[in-house]
């Protein structure tokens, strides 16, 4: 673990990998220290902002021990997906399998929300499966709300219409983010997700 400077209100904790990030985030947020304003996990780091002293924060952060197995400890939700995404044939070709097999792999894996970003409620989901899907060469200017997509080792669901470069494999009718709902975001770090084939919708 390395603590990196991030101004006079935050520190950036750099960790070895996604699993350690999730373990660290889970440990830190299970018992949130006083004065901590925000805890932002990402791929290799956790940013922690405080309204108090950086020295106190630094001591607190060094004392946190990442929880092992955090990836498989969160609660589980099921997300129904109609697998008719425009890029599904391309993804199948990239993986050297049929589109049906892509669906089988995507629904067969158990996914975990590693972190959020890009847009409110957009979760970066990882699984134990070996996904390595390049982004589209030219991003779309409009990806529809609910699009289920792949990029790199991640799967995600677009919470609202936005530009995006991920490969679209399907869509879900579930509102992933709704600011008038409590809680607004269905995906939060640590939550486990299983995608379910909803047939033709």
């Amino acid at each position: 673990m390395r603590l990196l400077p991030s101004g006079d209100r935050a520190l950036l904790v750099e960790l070895d990998d996604l699993d350690e990030v999730l373990g660290y985030y889970t440990a830190l947020t299970a018992d949130p220290p006083a004065d901590v304003v925000d805890v932002v996990p990402a791929a290799r780091t956790v940013l922690v902002t405080t309204s108090g002293s950086l020295d106190v924060l630094s001591r607190t952060l060094r004392a946190v021990t990442p929880i092992a197995g955090a990836r498989t400890a969160g609660d589980l939700i099921e997300i129904p997906v109609v697998y008719d995404g425009e890029d599904l044939p391309d993804v199948a070709e990239l993986l050297g399998c049929s589109t049906a097999e892509v669906v089988e792999r995507h629904t067969g894996d158990e996914w975990t929300v590693a972190f959020c970003g890009f847009a409110p409620g957009f979760g970066y989901l990882t699984s134990a499966g070996s996904w390595d899907i390049p982004r589209r060469e030219s991003p779309r200017t409009k990806v529809p709300t609910g699009a289920v997509a792949l990029a790199g080792e991640f799967s995600g669901v677009y919470p609202r219409e936005s530009p995006g470069g991920w490969q679209l494999i399907g869509r879900t009718p579930v509102r992933i983010f709704d600011s008038s709902r409590e809680p607004a975001a269905l995906f939060h770090p640590g939550r486990r997700v299983r995608f379910v084939d909803a047939g033709r919708g």
Partner: peptide
């Protein structure tokens, strides 16, 4: 909206 950054919500 500080406090919700972990959900991708900017301050």
């Amino acid at each position: 909206r500080s406090g919700q950054a972990a959900l991708g919500v900017p301050a």
